[in-house]
Design a protein around this nucleic acid. Sequence first.
DNA 1: GTTTAGCACTTGACCCTAAAGAGTGCTAAA
DNA 2: TTTAGCACTCTTTAGGGTCAAGTGCTAAAC
Lengths: 349, 349
Amino acid sequence: MLTQRQNKILQAIVRQYTLTGQPVGSRHLAEDLPFKVSSATVRNEMAVLEKAGLILKEHSSSGRLPSKKGYRYYVDHLLDPKAVTDNDLVVIQNSLGTSFQKIDEIISHSADILSNLTSYTAFTLKPEQVDVRLSGFRLVPLGNHKVIAILVTDSGDVESQAFTLPRNLDLDALQAVIRMINDQLVGLPLADVMRRLNDDIPLRIMHYMHSADGFLDLFDNVVSKAAREQFFIGGRLNLLDFSNTRDPQALQTMYRLLDHDDELSHLLDTGKAGDGVNVRIGSEISKDKVLDNYSLITATYDVDQYGKGIIAVLGPTRMPYSRTIGLVNAFRQELAKRLLDFYRHYYDS
Amino acid sequence: MLTQRQNKILQAIVRQYTLTGQPVGSRHLAEDLPFKVSSATVRNEMAVLEKAGLILKEHSSSGRLPSKKGYRYYVDHLLDPKAVTDNDLVVIQNSLGTSFQKIDEIISHSADILSNLTSYTAFTLKPEQVDVRLSGFRLVPLGNHKVIAILVTDSGDVESQAFTLPRNLDLDALQAVIRMINDQLVGLPLADVMRRLNDDIPLRIMHYMHSADGFLDLFDNVVSKAAREQFFIGGRLNLLDFSNTRDPQALQTMYRLLDHDDELSHLLDTGKAGDGVNVRIGSEISKDKVLDNYSLITATYDVDQYGKGIIAVLGPTRMPYSRTIGLVNAFRQELAKRLLDFYRHYYDS
DNA sequence: GTTTAGCACTTGACCCTAAAGAGTGCTAAA
DNA sequence: TTTAGCACTCTTTAGGGTCAAGTGCTAAAC
């Protein structure tokens, strides 16, 4: 357990270091503390903190900087819960205030706002509605051998896709297939629908027409669109750290990461469990060493019965945690409000 | 006018420099030439080329590298028209050979292929069909106050968008509006449709219902989706040049460019005029100084009566022009073939 | 009249050293 | 327990020397 003074010193080290990016020495630190001690005293205390693994030296005669463990301790115990500034709040509310046609637009735009506010990379995940069910499936003929396939879920989502019919198709057979699909699949959870599409549905279709391939692709396509987790990224380029430009190997790996959204989306998987705001530092984010010098701040937002979503910010370990956490927290609340509004307005009967 | 020997020397300088990235000196150059001369002779010739503004020194005692004007001359007069390798051709054909559901998928995928082949940034633009007309507009009710708006063009493109109706809507009025829209707008070019949507249509809608806003947004939305130039980018990150990491200011500007597709899409505007493959070097690309060390290779591809599209590759000025131009040229032909196939198969009656 | 050998000169890259500055750990006194 | 003082460590910066690559020029060779 640390003394009160040691806490203050660790706090000051983190504050200084996140501000300047330079290791902080005992003399400067002494001046920055809220009580008056000499640099020698600070040195003694720093020796204790170093023994506890909370701070590091870059080399034997450099100043100190927080270790991962030090950041952890800071975030867990020393964070001063500074509320978000009025200005930031206004920006958030204004950005979310504009009118949107679709949930996806709000979520996607949110990633950009959050990224702009923090100047880091931001992620947003659509509210996950457990147990979404297929509530209807239609083919609307458009003439000239074209149809549009429309899928509606009981959560109110609509997905559609245009399709060109095989030349030699019997229209009656087509109607029969649609009726069969609706008979068989409406009311089932989307996961089950996907399963059945690979399972018994092909055979049933073949009952009416020669080959099921084209239709299966079509169904599969719209169902997976509807079932897909909607994942958005804002400010991905912020992941590339200017200051860190020395190591080309690390940059290379970062590039790979930047181009593969799926890898990034996995980072949020563990975030689904918790509630509220959660901070993961360095190796706590993933096994991948590229992210060792990053911190991930995740938060869930809760839209009542409409489900829970996730927002997240990925920035350097050396970040102003107080501000960033404050922003993420404010954002999750505003986003939840906004979405509740949206759902109420559009999806309720 | 340059002598034959000077041509050969310039050619060799470009070849060497694009290969190694290092200024080339007279001694090495003399060894690389197809005829036997001493380094002193080469030095004399290089002095001539430098006076003509075709080559440069980095400092008073460095080797020479091509100037922008030198590249221009090289591309215009010295390029040896090496055909694309069999291997590359196979890659192109295979990549384009897979099955696609939509034109957009082909075009979008093309940008990725082209970027992979060249390891530069690639752009693709969908074939522009002049004078596309609206051939039908429908609202299909989905129950629970939802409808899906569907727009079909005479080129066979389909766009759709889900929409939630205002609570207090009169269904008859709705039908009337749709009928009116179809009466008024079907058969018109999309540009005219857009114009009318801002012009007399609002008033006409208000004839049937109180406020036209929601509907106008909806119409506007699907029409602009259909009218929008489809622009795809592959390998945008390749724009960031590892070797050039020294100048942080330039990097910063590059970042901005990377995030703004519209600015990039403007680069292709001037490419629409020409036919075949076209090379723009450095400042010829745009006024923006960030692109001074890049070259843009554009090419049109012609899908007969279905319109013309554009592909382009943006890479460093120091690039192997012969290979890149060859690739772009091969690609435009293969893409045209593939698309012709697609259109014939799907859109013809 | 070209071409070439030779040479003085320029420049960047690399390495070494010295000095300055920031910081530490330790000791002994306050 | 705190602090002043000091020896020591390490990084950064500047300067100087050397080396290799390259140039321009001159005078001789072809």
